[in-house]
Design a protein around this nucleic acid. Structure first.
Lengths: 269, 269
DNA sequence: CGGGCCATTGAAGTATGTCAAAGTTTGTGG
DNA sequence: CCACAAACTTTGACATACTTCAATGGCCCG
């Protein structure tokens, strides 16, 4: 295998203006002033993580503003230029992109504390559209200033790298969901993943409101919305869960896992 | 929605010893001495990218060694601690992880110039296993030193961020493949993606050797190996391609795209 | 040259997609 | 605050693309 062939189409490194900040695109949407990380209830899940003292100043310097989204509103759209990362303060969002037939493929769901938008780094444009599943609020993080902060703080460098690693692992995980042969396994694994998300945020893992439609779930899992609905009904018949539209109660999580799900899931609690 | 619930299970930031380098795990495998990036034929696709002059010193400082892999050998395994990123010098690899039923799910394929292992950043362990599809050679990049380099060079920071973004976009793309309803669309889109990879590396996009087995392709595409084989035979019958085991000739790429694939694919050439 | 791995092809059963209709929930405007 | 409309969910029936099982054939490596 000779590797000395001509090299074509080397992707350009996106040019991020280090000093001059593109604040305007955000302001145009009627942004709110930034909120300091120190008092944010989900800071431990978010960019600040377990960063040591002295990072308050650096962190607050990254924040350009907040953005309030009503259900269905877009945070950014497929193809738009990338300027900011966005941290979810509250509410939830979905990411997706259009397929050839015009339908949307849902790629990921985002909850409070998630930092999203990293995929825009590849070529300087967002490859996905982020849509609010309910009323939500996000913090815009200047990517340019974040990089400056990384020059200063090794801890911040590791944290940013870690967050991107988490994004990758999530994609793996969702690929793992879709890889399952039977739709019951996919839906069961999805419910357990939901429970994990809830636990990470300190909520009850026994019952929760699902913010996404059956169509969103189906798209995410690579199956039809009817199949999702049928699986949920089946689990309910079998006594594993109780379903009332978007309110779901996990009556027998271990039973559900034993019957359908991956052994690699952490045991419980 | 009250967010002030107790926060549990904050993931630990992995501790990367900045100075003390874990060289041993690599040396134990019988590593070769590092090769300078400057003379590497795939440097434009790899970490160096379009980095300006003066980065030669920084780059060569990152390289710990090379590793030669025979077909079927593992570069790293699921669960092993993360120390290095790996750049593919030549050959090709697959990434995958075990599912509950013991089968392997193939997550990605890697070709010369790819930098892999970023997913180990999430918690300091590799979530996937990387296996050589043919004889291959990789450069081990010290993550700790890479971070140090990022402190120095803004360009390197952007490049690393870009590479991680590319990883994310690839995962999106592969998710987009699997999201397609019909297996013919998946296989057709996969062939076109293969052609793109070849083009990026300056090879003929008309004919190439597929290094992965039908089982690998099937796993990657979320379908069975038999279905992959049947689709290829069908495309051959329809005159779009010629197949002789792993040697594939793209006779009518545009026809294939028109018949099955995503309109969002770039036009051609 | 032989053996093992991999690819191909066939046949049969089934899980799941699609279409359709009825029943709920949610949101809006009067 | 109520009532209506729109959006979403559930359930059923049917068609089919896909998986599975199985057997043959080809390729590559030792």
């Amino acid at each position: 295998m000779d590797l000395r062939g001509p090299l074509a189409d080397v992707p350009p490194v996106p040019r991020f203006v280090p000093g001059g900040l593109p604040v305007l695109p955000l302001a145009a949407h009627g942004a709110l002033p930034p909120a300091p990380c120190g008092s944010c209830p989900v800071r431990h899940l978010c960019l600040p993580g377990a960063l040591g003292p002295g990072h308050g100043r650096i962190l607050d310097n990254l924040l350009i503003g907040r953005k309030r989204l009503r259900k269905g509103q877009k945070l950014y759209r497929e193809g738009e230029p990338f300027h900011f990362l966005h941290a979810v303060r509250f509410g939830s969002l979905k990411s997706g992109f259009r397929l050839s037939d015009g339908s949307e493929h849902v790629n990921a769901f985002h909850l409070a504390g998630d930092v999203i938008g990293f995929d825009g780094l590849a070529d300087g444009n967002h490859p996905t559209t982020a849509t609010a599943l309910e009323n939500a609020e996000t913090c815009a993080i200047s990517y340019a200033r974040l990089m400056e902060g990384c020059a200063e703080s090794p801890e911040l460098r590791d944290r940013v790298a870690q967050l991107m690693g988490v994004q990758l692992v999530r994609e793996h995980r969702s690929a793992g969901l879709v890889a399952r042969r039977h739709s019951e396994e996919r839906v069961a694994a999805f419910l357990l993943e939901l429970a994990r998300w809830m636990r990470e945020r300190g909520y009850s893992t026994r019952e929760f409101h699902v913010r996404m439609s059956r169509a969103d779930i189906g798209s995410y899992l690579g199956t039809s919305l009817e199949t999702v609905s049928r699986c949920l009904s089946q689990f309910a018949r079998e006594g594993f869960i109780k379903v009332r539209s978007r309110h779901i109660e996990l009556v027998d999580r271990d039973g559900l896992r034993a019957a359908y799900a991956d052994r690699r899931e952490e045991p419980a609690r």
